[in-house]
């Protein structure tokens, strides 16, 4: 939880403390800064928009896999009582069918995991984009030309805070305001990613026998280097040595009570699938609003 919160507040705090009116840049430099900053913001926002679209297609692919997985599992569970009509005379037909369904479920597990991995990658990319909105001015030693950089790693040798002294980049909004919009957006996807992770864990554990289920817990790595990726997303808590627990925007979580069930009843499975579909942490109206405001500000259409 701490890692999440500190990530949100640090960038805005450092820029907000600067006085908004006085710019450390001379007017001539500022005149050059603005088009560069504008170009950078346009690029970052259109990338963010494409990330958002990629997220929704990855999420719906994941839902498709999860639904198929649940169906394979339920068919296996119902197989002993299924009326097979004329087929019931065939020797070992139920066993064969179950084996086939089991194999299919294995395949669907790995596909679901791929969708999850893709979503992790998207969120990580979105975070990078939201942190690359500043435009730093650099004055090289032996050159009269100004250089511009969008990488906060270059912050040390740049002559300003990267925000043009807080002036509006287009019409109304400063770099800080753009960053705030982007953070608000990214935050929704981060929270949703944690929730999806919980669902993925649950979908992966259904149908496994109990000994294997014990190995699946919140701090288990779902794929190689998952925790490295989650650290990139600020979703790994070093204090608890595990991924940040799932929660809703204004809610809490109680991960201590977490028990994965390998034979959940169909109603519970339906709730899981609905939760995947509903994306409770992503306020779609607000997302659209943010992109609309930014488009209006930048005079481009990015969605």
């Amino acid at each position: 939880m701490e890692t999440l919160d500190s990530a949100i507040s640090t960038p805005s705090r450092s820029t907000d403390s600067k006085p908004q009116t006085s710019s450390p840049l001379p007017p001539s430099a500022l005149r050059l800064w603005r088009p560069n900053a504008q170009r950078n913001l346009r690029n970052q926002w259109s990338e963010l928009a494409s990330c958002k679209n990629r997220w929704f297609s990855a999420s719906s692919a994941g839902r498709f896999q999860a639904t198929a997985l649940v169906n394979s599992h339920l068919s296996q569970r119902y197989m002993p009582d299924m009326k097979l009509g004329v087929l019931s005379d065939m020797p070992g037909i139920r066993k064969q069918a179950c084996l086939k369904l089991y194999k299919r479920q294995e395949l669907q597990r790995s596909k679901l995991l791929l969708s999850y991995k893709e979503m992790v990658g998207i969120v990580s990319h979105m975070i990078n984009l939201s942190r690359s909105m500043k435009c730093f001015v650099k004055v090289p030693n032996n050159s009269p030309l100004l250089q511009f950089s969008y990488n906060s790693a270059d912050r040390s040798d740049s002559v300003d805070g990267g925000d043009g002294g807080g002036i509006p980049v287009f019409t109304f909004y400063s770099i800080t305001s753009h960053e705030k919009f982007a953070e608000e957006l990214v935050e929704m996807f981060k929270l949703e990613l944690c929730l999806k992770r919980l669902l993925v864990l649950e979908f992966l554990s259904i149908g496994y026998d109990t000994s294997e289920v014990k190995q699946l817990h919140w701090s288990a790595q779902l794929y190689d280097d998952e925790f490295r990726d989650l650290r990139d997303c600020n979703l790994y808590c070093e204090v608890t040595n595990g991924p940040v627990p799932p929660r809703l925007r204004d809610g809490k979580s109680d991960i201590g009570a977490l028990r994965f069930d390998n034979q959940p009843n169909p109603e519970v499975l339906q709730v899981y699938l609905t939760t995947w579909l509903a994306e409770a942490n992503i306020d779609t109206l607000r997302v659209d609003e943010i992109f609309a405001v930014v488009e209006e500000e930048m005079h481009v259409s990015i969605c």
Binding site: L195, L198, L201, E202, P245, P246, R247, L248, D250, G251, K252, S253, D254, I255, G256, A257, L258, R259, F260, D261, P264, N265, E267, V268, Q270, V271, Y272, T274, T275, A278, E279, A280
Partner: peptide, 26 residues
């Protein structure tokens, strides 16, 4: 109806406010 019953939430019970949020979204 399934969503209204908080017994149907399985592991999602650890996420506070899940039921209300889900119903609202639906």
């Amino acid at each position: 109806q399934v969503l209204q019953n908080s017994n149907n939430y399985g592991v999602l019970k650890c996420v506070g406010g899940m039921r209300d949020a889900l119903l609202e979204k639906q």
